[in-house]
Design a protein around this nucleic acid. Structure first.
Length: 623
RNA sequence: GGAGUUGUAGCUCAAUUGGUUAGAGUGCCACCCUGUCACGGUGGAUGUUGCGGGUUCGAGUCCCGUCAAUUCCGCCA
């Protein structure tokens, strides 16, 4: 019986000198000096230098050696001479003098290099994901993720949270995204849905009295990808607490983040309590509900100053109900003209009609619009922006929502181009007080603005007495460096408040009963007040690994088209499976002829196979 | 579904205003080398310039179409 190893490639030290040991791993690199050969042998734990004398008999097998071959070396641990120590290697003070060698797994020429910093095309990387995962950075990303999840479990369990699995095969839920559907064999024509989130289950767990629940929960959404959004599936730290206020939820997440972020990254973390920013303030100040607070720039409203201005373009916008928004950028008066031009182009690409700017330099204002403006207006701007010499202000005038939206993008772009965003900190904030309702621009009536199941602030009284558009929900987001880590809410657990909220949004009681009857029934049978949140595990890992793309923290990610290029998913399936599931193509959705040609061809093929099977003497297949 | 960027050797990239045989590094193959650790040296093989069409005496380069990758918008708590 051949023992594969006595040690890993990462653990031998000077203390082991003189021992005969055995290590196994991948040939990371070969340095053949003719009279002596060095091999770096790599495994999950590290690398060890193996020294080979070409006179050894096993050297003859060198022909088969190639980088990434899996081999087992037996040899003696030797302390390296001082001048040959490799300080870059944890095992760099020793080396293994090989006495015997066995090849455990041969390796063809690899499609991209693993030992060298060489970036292969995404499609190749994904098709050979198991090779890509051998690379140091990706390997360590996946390990960080693994440890992150272990730490989350440890911490949450320590706080008294219970991890409980919820169904993967469930029913289509009222979340906003498209579902992944799974056909039912037992009930032809009916479908399971994969959960977009275990939302209803975790609420039911609260109603069932489990008090504190969490789960590293897989979630499935059939939506298109982004750099920070993997298509198809992702993981959340899903959690829910009974008898909890919004501040209770915040305290748990803050303590978790304070515990975890410093463990996995040396970047500076916002100390708890994280700033709470009301949704409306965030929109006004940052033009976004997920502001990157590392960026010091902010938007301010200067509509009043331009209301009666001689600069008619802006004055008329204000007169027609629009707004003028300004972003001050300190000390950039020295930027060339081309900088301003390209920023204006950028604003236009974002949907602005244009963008104006004023440069304060040497006690005077420089700008194409200054000549239209009165002295008092310029002074008022200077005061409003607390302008110092060398500062620049950019202006966007439009319908308020558009001016803010573009302003938000301009703010981010300025931050990037001017290098205002520090790379060594995590700036956290809570966005709170999301409006419960917003105006449906088509119907002019209130509709739910985010989650219909959040508790309105002020409860029933607010719904009955206040203007719906001014009611806030106990609904919140947590944002880190401009990335939304999660939404959460204190849930609406009172049926009568639920009916009332839906009534305001234009839904009859019967509709609520029909669509959400299960939940309503549960709420009627003793539901505790409860709330929760579900930070994205992938996004947390992405931030902690300092990766710009979420694929870099997922072991086997989809590509942007939601395909797994290694497993070849999705794929066509056998007609037999489709028949069994009663999946019948709808002729009106397909070209008739083509469809039926294919069907007939497939049917003929299956008849052949079945006929062949029937003709052969029965083998393993029991009848 | 829409927009931007990119597409040249296995990989990273070069190739002047359109100009003659498309180059370099790395990898691959062969040989040399006893202290390297991204070892070094010599030599060699490797290209449908994504694909299809067009303009031109001549296209990697210009035009049109198409495909693919990626980023963004739509969508998505």
């Amino acid at each position: 019986m051949h023992q594969f190893r006595t040690h890993t490639c990462g653990e031998l030290t000077k203390a082991d000198a003189g021992k005969t040991v055995r290590i196994s791993g991948w040939i990371h690199s070969v340095r053949d000096h003719g009279g002596v050969i060095f091999i770096d042998l790599r495994d999950h734990y590290g690398k060890t230098q193996v020294v080979i004398d070409p006179n050894k008999s096993f050297y003859q097998e060198l022909d088969k050696w190639r980088v990434e071959t899996v081999v087992c070396f037996t040899g003696t641990v030797v302390t390296r001479a001082a001048e040959t120590v490799n300080p870059k290697l944890a095992t760099g003070e020793i080396e293994l003098v090989a006495e015997d060698m066995v090849i455990l797994g041969e390796c063809d020429v690899i499609p991209f290099q693993i030992a060298k910093e060489e970036q292969a095309p995404e499609a190749t990387r994904l098709a050979y994901r198991f090779l890509d995962l051998r690379k140091e950075k990706l390997h360590s990303n996946i390990m960080l993720r693994s440890k992150l999840i272990a730490e989350i479990r440890r911490f949450m369990t320590g706080l008294g949270f219970n991890e409980i699995q919820t169904p993967i095969l469930t029913s289509s839920s009222p979340e906003g995204a498209r579902d992944y559907l799974v056909p039912s064999r037992v009930h032809p024509g009916q479908f399971y849905a994969l959960p977009q989130a275990p939302q209803q289950f975790k609420q039911l767990l609260m109603i069932a009295g489990f008090d504190k629940y969490f789960q590293i929960a897989p979630c499935f959404r059939d939506e298109d990808a982004r750099a920070d959004r993997s298509p198809g599936e992702f993981y959340q730290l899903d959690m829910e607490m009974s008898f909890a206020t919004q501040d209770d939820i915040f305290a748990v997440i803050e303590s978790l983040f304070m515990e975890i972020f410093p463990k996995f990254s040396s970047k500076k973390l916002t100390p708890a309590p994280f700033p709470r920013i009301p949704y409306r303030e965030s929109m006004q100040k940052y033009g976004s509900d997920k502001p990157d607070l590392r960026n010091p720039l902010f938007i301010q409203d200067v509509s009043d100053i331009f209301a009666k201005s001689g600069f008619k373009a802006f004055a008329s916008v204000v007169e027609n109900g629009g707004k003028v928004k300004a972003i001050k950028v300190p000390g950039i008066a020295g930027q060339p003209r081309s900088f301003y031009d390209s920023m204006i182009d950028f604003a236009k690409e974002c949907g602005a009609k244009g963008m104006a700017y004023i440069i304060w330099t040497g006690n005077e204002e420089k700008s194409p619009i200054v000549k239209f403006m009165a002295r008092e207006e310029l002074d008022a701007l200077k005061a409003a922006g607390n302008i110092q010499d060398g500062d620049v202000m950019f202006f966007l005038a439009d319908k308020e929502s558009l001016a803010l939206e573009v302003g938000g993008q301009v703010r981010t772009e300025l931050g990037k181009r001017l290098n205002l965003i520090s790379d060594d900190e995590f700036k956290m904030c809570w966005i709170v007080d999301f409006p419960m309702f917003e105006l449906d621009e088509e119907t002019g009536k209130p509709m739910f603005s985010h989650n219909p199941f959040s508790m309105p602030q002020g409860g029933m009284e607010a719904l009955e007495t206040m203007d719906p558009l001014s009611i806030n929900a106990y609904q919140y987001d947590i944002v880190c460096n401009g990335i939304e880590l999660s939404s959460g809410a204190i849930r609406n657990h009172r049926p009568e408040i639920m009916y009332k909220a839906f009534e305001i949004a234009g839904y009859d009681k019967s509709v609520v009963d029909e669509k959400f009857g299960g939940m309503i029934k549960a709420f009627k049978l003793g539901a505790p007040p409860h709330g929760g949140i579900a930070p994205g595990v992938d996004r947390m890992a992405m931030l902690l690994c300092d990766e710009p793309n979420i694929r870099e923290v997922i072991a086997f990610p989809f590509n942007q088209q939601a395909q797994d290029l290694m497993m070849n998913a999705p794929a066509t399936v056998d007609m037999k499976q489709l028949r069994e599931l009663r999946i019948i193509p709808l002729p009106q959705e397909l070209k008739f002829e083509e469809t039926f040609k294919k069907l007939y061809a497939e049917a003929a093929r299956i008849r052949e196979i079945e006929a062949a099977a029937n003709n052969t003497t029965a083998g393993d297949a029991a009848k």
